[in-house]
């Protein structure tokens, strides 16, 4: 007979996993910016051997191009993985990801509308706003309809409603592209492939701030989500305020996904496979898993982006292509492996 794990060892094991992932996160943050199409020297970038006041291209590349990009990938990947883990818990479905309630379709349609209709000068500002607004509207619409239906909407209904909205927005996206000129169409396709080259610390800070605040609120209720994964009624009988927990998790995860998608486009697979992968490693307990997702999702996306920047350098691949090419085979293995 195996003896039960005492309380302290559970806490120790958790701390160990978090620490390992945090070290990986920091390593990626330190090393990934050094890789890329152009060779740069770290000492030069840090100003050693460069006369004061002279233009320093290494520093320019490191601090203004690569570092914000890697940092954004670390933040965005973590937020997408957390969002996916939360959706998988509240919808009780392994296939749920951050985009499942129409966030990707809505954001894509909003982005394309701006690319088509808005004057070039305001695109940079307006595009994330429109992508966010329509993504949020999609989630609100689904939630509103579920309230109208009654208090106990089954998770499958949410999923099907999300798929429907994504298909509807997909048709809108195709129509917008069909009506656009080829140059616009290229920009649209590029945006829809996703990318983490946001090129400014301000965007990184904004996404990290909004996403971080929402994450904190969700992580605070990690145990509620564990219980909710047994079904709403069981969770209710165990003392979980089901409606408010589900609302909070739904809106929190959607907010996190929408704010990432608004700047990065719909990057696939991170929010789907990272939670599954980490569940295999740290177990299903959301008190451990959600923080692990914040760290591990960032590491995964930043590594994929480093691959995207280096494999065919100087040509860059869209990061969404790399996450799909690495994520899809893994997910297939996960589905068909012998248990």
């Amino acid at each position: 007979m195996s003896s039960p794990t005492p309380d302290r060892s559970q806490a120790r094991r958790t701390a160990l996993w978090w620490a390992l992932l945090a070290v990986a996160w920091l390593l990626v943050l330190g090393l990934a910016p050094l890789a890329g199409a152009a060779e740069i020297s770290l000492p030069r970038a840090l100003g050693f051997g460069v006369p004061e006041g002279e233009f320093n291209p290494d520093a320019q590349i490191l601090f203004h191009s690569r570092l914000p990009r890697v940092l954004f990938a670390l933040v965005a990947g973590g937020l997408l993985a957390l969002s996916g883990a939360v959706y998988q818990a509240i919808l009780r479905n392994d296939l749920a990801d951050p985009y499942v309630l129409g966030v990707s379709g809505g954001a894509g349609f909003g982005a394309l509308l701006v690319l088509t209709l808005a004057p070039a000068a305001v695109v940079a500002f307006l595009l994330p706003a429109a992508a966010f607004a329509i993504a949020a509207a999609a989630v609100l619409l689904i939630y509103g309809m579920s309230r109208w239906r009654g208090p106990h909407t089954p998770p499958a209904t949410f999923l099907l409603a999300g798929i429907t909205l994504n298909l509807l927005f997909g048709a809108g996206i195709l129509l917008t592209q069909y009506l656009s000129d080829p140059y616009q169409t290229f920009r649209m396709i590029r945006w829809l492939m996703g990318g983490v080259d946001v090129g400014s610390y301000r965007v990184v800070a904004f996404v990290a701030g909004v996403g971080g605040a929402a994450s904190l609120v969700i992580v605070w209720r990690a145990r509620h989500l564990d219980l909710l994964s047994l079904g709403e009624q069981t969770a209710h009988h165990l003392g979980v305020p089901v409606a408010s927990t589900r609302r909070l998790a739904l809106f929190g995860a959607s907010l996190v996904a929408a704010v990432v998608v608004a700047y990065a486009g719909p990057i696939g697979f991170v929010g789907l496979i990272v939670p599954h992968l980490l569940r295999l490693v740290v177990g299903p307990d959301n008190r451990v898993l959600l923080v692990a997702c914040l760290l591990g999702g960032g590491v995964f996306l930043a590594l994929c982006d480093t691959l995207a920047r280096t494999v065919l350098a100087p040509t860059e691949l869209p990061v969404g292509v790399v996450t799909a090419f690495t994520g899809a085979p893994f997910f297939l293995w996960l589905l068909f492996r012998k248990v």
Binding site: Q88, A89, R92, S229, L230, T234, G283, P284
Partner: peptide
């Protein structure tokens, strides 16, 4: 209850 769901491997 008669039934409950188990989605994850607790």
């Amino acid at each position: 209850l008669q039934r409950e769901e188990h989605t994850f491997a607790f």
